[in-house]
Design a protein around this nucleic acid. Structure first.
Lengths: 168, 168
DNA sequence: TATTGTTATACTCTATAACTATA
DNA sequence: TATAGTTATAGAGTATAACAATA
């Protein structure tokens, strides 16, 4: 994804009184953070698109594919492909529900638990890398500002919009 | 692009003393900002991938496709496709250089100038929309923090990493 | 009939590699 | 030989629509 050029401070001048370029910087730095994270988790053998799914299954085991599709804002057939991949890697299991044999209850396999643990460590290191320029106070400040924007813009906590389908 | 889930404040609790989740928030809010901007510029008939190109040509007219490819971090054949699209829409012109007939000098067409002007207005409105939750002081604060991160992470001012090719 | 999941298909994006023309 | 640009091709990602099994 890409965003607009801004008049910015390409010339190295100090920021103006009315700040400009925050939106572009957000998109730029955000894309960078996502790319770096993707590189890191690549070492665990999972793709960025897998991460949300894994976490949602870990948080609420037994969920159906439909419920994941809804929360992620993707089409159910997409979840089929994602779960196929995770199942092939031995990270999740599809368990039939005897009460209603139409849907599956999704659970993490043992290997999936290990990958989730690895991701938590990795997320912590990632956080430190991205925020290396900031001290603890500034980090808290940034988090607060971003949380305010996220809330006002109606973003769901923990759900990355990368999943959403623009084309209707 | 997608990033990691964070332990976050899904439960609505107050932020902890050691801030967690800034990197995920960055990626989440950044992707949202990029998506909203893409929706806006869609009305001008250009795609997000066109924007950087248009701006770079506007900033330094007469550039070659090669130089654009290098600065954007994409392969030259990709620039061919992008410039083809912009030329077809009447936004840019390829002018032969009589001194060296191998390369083109790229220039904005009249319609391209109009679109650039439209984008500047639109970027301003976009900025206001994304930062609606913040007052001017907070906006300046956010910009400062993001600029510090961008500089420390080695990001090029005004160049969106969405252009970069991870697959080598 | 409605719901869950699946398959078949097509479209977009973008890189690689081979090629043309010019130098 | 080297450089700017182009074409042909292939792979990844993801949506739409038709379908099967179950309720």
């Amino acid at each position: 994804m890409t965003t607009q050029p801004q008049t910015g401070h390409d010339d190295g001048s100090a920021p103006r009184s009315r700040p400009r370029g925050a939106a572009f910087l957000l998109s730029q730095v955000g894309a960078h953070a996502a790319t770096r994270f993707a590189e890191r988790i690549g070492g665990l053998g999972v793709a960025p698109s897998d991460v949300g799914l894994l976490r949602m299954i870990a948080t609420r085991p037994g969920r159906s594919q439909q419920s994941l599709a809804e929360e992620l804002g993707v089409v159910p057939s997409r979840v089929v492909a994602l779960v196929d991949g995770l199942e092939r890697k031995g990270l999740v299991e599809r368990r039939r529900n005897p009460q209603d044999r139409r849907n599956y209850a999704l659970h993490l396999a043992a290997e999936g638990e290990r990958v989730m643990a690895g991701m938590r460590d990795l997320a912590s290191a990632h956080e430190d890398e991205i925020c290396a320029a900031l001290d603890d106070t500034q980090r808290a400040q940034l988090t607060e500002l971003l949380e305010a924007i996220a809330a006002q813009q109606g973003l769901t906590a923990g759900v990355h919009p990368g999943y959403r389908h623009l084309p209707q």
